[in-house]
Nucleic acid binder design. Structure first.
Lengths: 256, 256
DNA sequence: CGTGATATTGATACGCATCAAAGGTAGTGG
DNA sequence: CCACTACCTTTGATGCGTATCAATATCACG
């Protein structure tokens, strides 16, 4: 859990870091919402001190109380399978919202851990619900957020159920590129916040396979990889590999 | 699309098939909702004549207008991949709600087709939104529905990303059993509404593999299979196979 | 600067896809 | 009602892709 005890109050009184001034506003809140309503939303959001790499935002099977908007950094969500191994279910970058799988059981179905120094806005769910009840655009926004999560998951299922190791990794890289682009960062050169082992776990591949394919892509001049820094040199090839064919042109992954 | 032209009116005036009397009510609407509110929900629901096997409820890339509660029968959701193949993303049985992945793009991200004679309640989304705005319990219910979908998808991702063919099929059978149980039907003996090929597509396996594993399970006296009729003879073994180990006891899949 | 985690690379084994063919089932029309 | 066809299911033989095991190289952190 995040230790929000006193830092929260600090932030509130400084009058900084509010939704109205947040640079992620257009990503996290693309809603026509009038200033007074924004203030009301803003008022319920808790801001805590940043999490460090390895700190948990929440743990599996603890009571669900809030959802979280990632302000900076990156999180990894994972569950522990019955057989005891960790299974990565998703990565959440700045501008994305995490924790929505806990709503229906009122209990988190996964744990979320910081992959690097990460700060989040905590949005208490009961208070959010009161608010969405009165602000139509906001209710719709959260319906859409959840819908997008559903769609992203189904996209990934699609990826996992059919494709080869190469196309899985290609797809994941394209998805990350797209998400960085949304934040107006480079979609050609970026840093992977997660380890090779996390990637493998997430995509259902052995670490060794991930590594091999990174070098293979490098030899084919599709990527340039330096540790966690990745540069996409040949986006077209990556697209072709990700769809498993070479005829159709590649649509941007995970748009919207 | 379903041809709802006149049958809708018919149903409405007959005062039958309404939510209040629907046997799926406790599954599809487990909400404390007062009778007057229920009437208002009821009033927006369209009821159309049943779909036959192969009829589509909606098509990918058509405008999203409604979500659907399955009253009877079963649906298959699928997308067409960039390379042109069908990819099954889910099965929806009676008491389940389908179509929620279209909310955020306002366009269906998958097609839904009847696997057998199927009837659904159509719930126009714009009118539902007005309603949820005023009925707190209902908004929460739909948040929960969507959250469950997210969790179910993540459960499946988990399954697809790690496990062997045997454990995938075991997991799927347990999931189906659980869902039949929810409807107070037998969780030991049931009919698979989908073909082997659908199962394989869904689980990322070749048809032949699905078939082989069904016979393997039969030889091990774990299942009895007669075409689409399946009897689970040894649930414990199935659980052990689904988690990939033999120590831990098996928790029911997809509860809640 | 050392120590454990992380990443790469190679050799081998195995699970599942694929190809091929035969049996079974359901729906159609004469 | 039966015959016919098209699809679905099962079973067998073979090959490929990726996991696994093993060893070394590199990185991160105290």
């Amino acid at each position: 859990m995040t230790d929000s005890s006193n830092s929260t109050v600090l932030f509130r009184h400084q009058n900084v870091n509010h939704c109205a001034e947040c640079s992620l506003n257009p990503i996290c809140l693309p809603v026509a919402i009038d200033p007074e309503e924004l203030d009301r939303l803003d008022a319920i959001i808790q801001r805590s001190r940043p999490l460090h790499r390895g700190d948990h935002l929440y743990w599996e099977e603890t009571p669900f109380e809030a959802i979280y908007a990632v302000k900076a950094g990156a999180l990894k969500a994972y569950t522990t399978t019955d057989s005891g191994e960790e299974q990565v279910t998703g990565f959440y970058l700045a501008g994305e919202v995490v924790g929505m799988d806990g709503i229906h059981t009122e209990q988190h179905m996964s744990s979320a851990v910081a992959l690097e120094t990460t700060s989040v806005c905590e949005i208490p769910f009961d208070r959010l619900q009161e608010l969405t009840q009165n602000i139509p655009g906001l209710q719709n926004h959260f319906f859409k957020l959840m819908s997008r999560e559903i769609q992203a998951d189904q996209q990934l299922m699609l990826l996992l159920s059919k494709k080869t190791a190469e196309s899985r990794i290609a797809s994941m890289l394209l998805s990350l590129a797209e998400r960085y682009k949304r934040r107006r960062l480079s979609d050609q050169r970026f840093r992977l916040p997660m380890s090779r082992s996390d990637i493998g776990n997430y995509l259902g591949l052995a670490v060794e396979t991930v590594s091999r394919i990174f070098t293979r892509f490098q030899n084919q001049n599709i990527l340039s990889v330096e540790g966690k820094e990745v540069t996409i040199l040949d986006r077209d090839s990556l697209c072709k590999i990700s769809v498993g064919q070479d005829e159709p042109s590649c649509k941007p992954a995970r748009t919207g």
